[in-house]
């Protein structure tokens, strides 16, 4: 569980301190201030692998909307993710990437599954935030599935509560890098790649 272990490790460590759950607010030092750099790398890769444009379908599967604030921020003129060739699309049929937030509430399970199925292969699933990794603070309860991986095969987990824009970009980079490692290039990213 390397990928999600990271996040879990973070949380457990924080929990031990004083019995309080302190979620890392996505202030991950390795990416701070590196937005442009990560973006250009991403743009190059997208140009090569996806014919210049990567389409993302976002699904809120019961998040607190904190992650949505940061994902929407990618579209503001400061981050302006479209200049790297990345676009949020309104139909799953147009998407390469499924970006999912939230612990997957029971009431969203069917909708998430159907959105996943509607995306043409090859597709990449990116789980955003502590909730999407393992349920986060909402855990695994009568009302939640306890993480995106329990419902659809997640390829990459982006830690943070919520992850800041740089980290989201880094996660996308990681996701398409994983895809390239697949034999045959643009193949279906199989579940568990990021976790192995």
């Amino acid at each position: 569980m390397g990928g999600s272990g990271d996040i879990l490790g973070n949380r457990l460590e924080a929990r031990a301190k004083d019995g309080l759950v302190r979620f890392p607010c996505g202030a991950c030092p390795s990416v701070a201030g590196r937005y442009e750099e990560i973006g250009s790398e991403l743009r190059e890769k997208i140009a090569k692998m996806f014919g210049r444009s990567l389409a993302i379908r976002e699904v809120d599967a019961g998040s607190c909307n904190g992650c949505e604030i940061e994902i929407s921020a990618l579209n503001n003129p400061v981050y302006d993710i479209e200049r790297f060739g990345i676009r949020f699309v309104s139909s799953p049929r147009h998407a390469d990437v499924l970006l999912v937030t939230g612990p997957v509430s029971r009431n969203m399970e069917a909708a998430l599954r159907r959105t996943y199925e509607a995306i043409p292969s090859p597709k990449i699933v990116v789980a955003v935030g502590a909730c999407a990794a393992d349920g986060g603070i909402f855990g695994d309860t009568y009302a939640t599935a306890g993480g995106v991986g329990r419902v659809v095969p997640a390829d990459v987990y982006i830690p943070g509560c919520p992850p800041r824009p740089e980290l989201l970009l880094q996660g996308l980079l990681l996701a398409i890098n994983r895809l390239r490692q697949e034999p045959g290039g643009r193949g279906q990213a199989s579940s568990g790649l990021a976790r192995s």
């Binding site: 309080l20 509430s105 009431n107 309860t141």
Partner: peptide
């Protein structure tokens, strides 16, 4: 659709955790 059982969850958490 986003029902996460927050009220029930709180009953299993410490009061200071519930702030989060």
């Amino acid at each position: 659709y986003a029902h996460k059982g927050i009220e029930k969850l709180a009953e299993s958490m410490a009061p200071e955790e519930i702030v989060r």
